[in-house]
């Protein structure tokens, strides 16, 4: 062990001598120009009055923040975004885990079915949105199928309820991404040692107990990854909701990104930047506790 560390240290020192640090400058310059500066400007422009209406850009202090927070639309959009993110995280993980458990065994059929469930992941999100919008129209295919099954004319506006539409679009989002969650859960299931499962079986655990007491707790790293990516990824959601509802009906699915898009389209670039800063801060504030909590769960093992 001790020899190993000395070796490693020696190697590191030698490498440092081989490559002076200023060799980093070209790469660093690229990183600064294409990453740090745009990010920085995302912050800077939030404090200006940049718009499409005039050429000069002036400092505006916290004007944008004051007017955004005094106007209820931003808070409403933020609320909608959070509800959407939580719903997506729940649905996507429930669907993904269920699929992973169903398709766990490596049979030929299962492999084919896994591929089928993974296809939506690589599809264009806008295409998914438009397809579902067509399916869920009052005279769309879903109502047609239901009507044929029950023998009556169906005209349910699936995307027309001011209460339930957000659930429907969250399900669509989860449907698109559930293949990815499935894949990660499958990988997680594969890492569980056969000996642990065998020991449990010898102790007389039934399938449910096995899942509840052994397999699910051992899946904790996969849960961390899936919940965090689903939750934080859907905070940045835009395409699916834009394609299905454009934020309607009655603004009940207006995610922050749709609001930003609308504001940007009005030529209010600084306000749009301010909103994206607010979104960035919200995601950051949410990310740390969520990830810490999920990582804590892993430690229990």
């Amino acid at each position: 062990m001790s020899t190993n560390t000395t070796l490693a240290k020696g190697a590191a020192r030698r490498r440092r001598h081989d490559h002076p640090l200023w060799f980093l400058i070209p790469a660093l310059a690229v990183l600064v120009v294409f990453f740090f500066v745009p990010t920085l400007f995302n912050f800077v422009y939030a404090f200006t009055d940049w718009s499409s209406f005039k050429s000069a850009i002036g400092f505006a202090g916290i004007d944008n923040f004051v007017s955004l927070f005094s106007n209820g639309t931003l808070l409403n959009a933020l609320k909608v975004t959070l509800v959407y993110a939580v719903l997506v995280a729940v649905f996507q993980n429930v669907f993904g885990l269920a699929l992973a458990l169903l398709l766990e065994r490596d049979t030929r059929v299962n492999r084919a079915v896994r591929v089928a469930f993974f296809i939506p992941v690589v599809m264009s999100a806008l295409a998914v949105g438009y397809i579902f919008q067509a399916l869920l129209k009052p005279d769309g295919a879903l109502n047609g199928i239901l009507g044929a099954l029950f023998g009556t004319e169906m005209a349910i506006p699936w995307l027309g309820s001011t209460t339930w539409t957000i659930v429907v679009v969250a399900v669509i989002h989860a449907w698109k991404w559930m293949g990815l969650s499935m894949l990660i859960y499958l990988a997680g299931l594969k890492t569980i040692g056969e000996d642990v499962l065998e020991a449990a079986r010898l102790d007389g655990a039934d399938r449910w107990t096995m899942f509840r007491a052994i397999r699910f707790p051992l899946l904790a790293p996969a849960v961390t990854f899936n919940v965090a990516t689903a939750l934080l990824g859907s905070m940045n959601g835009f395409d699916i909701v834009q394609a299905t509802t454009e934020g309607g009906p009655g603004g009940t699915t207006e995610l922050l990104n749709i609001f930003i898009f609308r504001t940007f389209g009005q030529g209010l670039f600084a306000q749009a930047t301010t909103m994206s800063l607010v979104l960035f801060l919200t995601v950051t504030i949410l990310a740390f506790p969520v990830i810490r909590f999920l990582r804590k769960r892993e430690d229990v093992l």
Binding site: T162, G247, G248, P249, G250, G251, T252
Partner: peptide, 10 residues
């Protein structure tokens, strides 16, 4: 948009 919101009842 706001008028459509009104028709939707929000």
């Amino acid at each position: 948009i706001y008028l459509a919101d009104m028709i939707q009842g929000t």
